[in-house]
Nucleic acid binder design. Structure first.
Lengths: 141, 141
DNA sequence: ATACGGTCCGTACCATACTACGGAGTCAAG
DNA sequence: CTTGACTCCGTAGTATGGTACGGACCGTAT
């Protein structure tokens, strides 16, 4: 185990350093999220250490709710000299609006479920359960 | 179009009345969410009108954030005489906890994105974008 | 020199919830 | 009795984000 991030790394080293699996690295390459690295004569991928950073970038963006498709766009924006920081901010703002929509939907679900559980004593057979009854109602909401 | 929900309905009538596609009805049957209906000699499914209700039940539960797997359990609870209303309430409460987890995650995402957009003037090239920089940082959070 | 682990590739598979397709048979209206 | 809409079935495809497999080859430590 010669640890030196100086020249080039194998796919396993990159995956390990970035905290993902080897298969995930190959998957990101196939999906165009990660540049195809040069190969050794044997066919082994040779990664520059910056590849680890790229993968961490992907992970962070994913944590912020971006899909891989959106992350691909983000990475493209970064490379394209015609785009500005405002283009990136637009993406971030769109994602915030996106999240707001999901928050609203979840809050509504939650309120409906809370209402239902409040109506349910917890005793009695399921045939008299107000929760199931509510789901079963013909005309509702 | 003889509309009479008196005896039995075809799959198309059921799907239409419930607001789903024919394929969805067959899908729910395959997935065990919908009882297999009797057939006519030709093989055509013959649905009792209550099937429409069952599908609407599924739709409402889905709207509340239950997965088809969870809905299958909910339907099983209803049929099993040993289960009580409390069992159903437990499911609902677990789903609320579930939703709370998602809400928290989304709120955190949102806050992080808002922070990033605040740091971004919108002007300048992407090479100087604080949002992309933040995603790219080696040591972070 | 050989063994063991890493890497190669293509393909298939996981879960979720459907949706589409093709070819044959059926039903009902005109 | 013909026509057009509906239904049958099994299989395959959609999108998302990976994970797993298998057989062959590579690299290095002993």
């Amino acid at each position: 185990m010669t640890e030196a991030a100086l020249e080039s790394m194998t796919i396993g080293q990159v995956a390990n350093a970035a905290g993902v699996g080897v298969e995930t690295v190959r998957f990101y390459e196939r999906e165009g999220l990660l540049a195809k690295p040069p190969r050794r004569p044997s066919g082994y991928r040779q990664y520059p250490p910056v590849a680890v950073r790229r993968i961490r970038f992907i992970k962070r963006a994913k944590d912020l709710g971006f899909t891989l498709g959106e992350i691909r766009e983000l990475l493209a924006l970064r490379v394209d000299p015609r785009t500005t920081c405002g283009d990136v901010r637009d993406r971030a703002e769109a994602k915030i609006a996106d999240i707001d929509g999901k928050l609203l939907a979840l809050q509504r679900m939650r309120a409906a479920l809370v209402d239902l559980t409040k109506a349910c004593s917890g005793r009695g057979p399921t045939s008299e359960c107000p929760i199931l009854d509510a789901l079963d109602e013909e005309e509702d909401r």
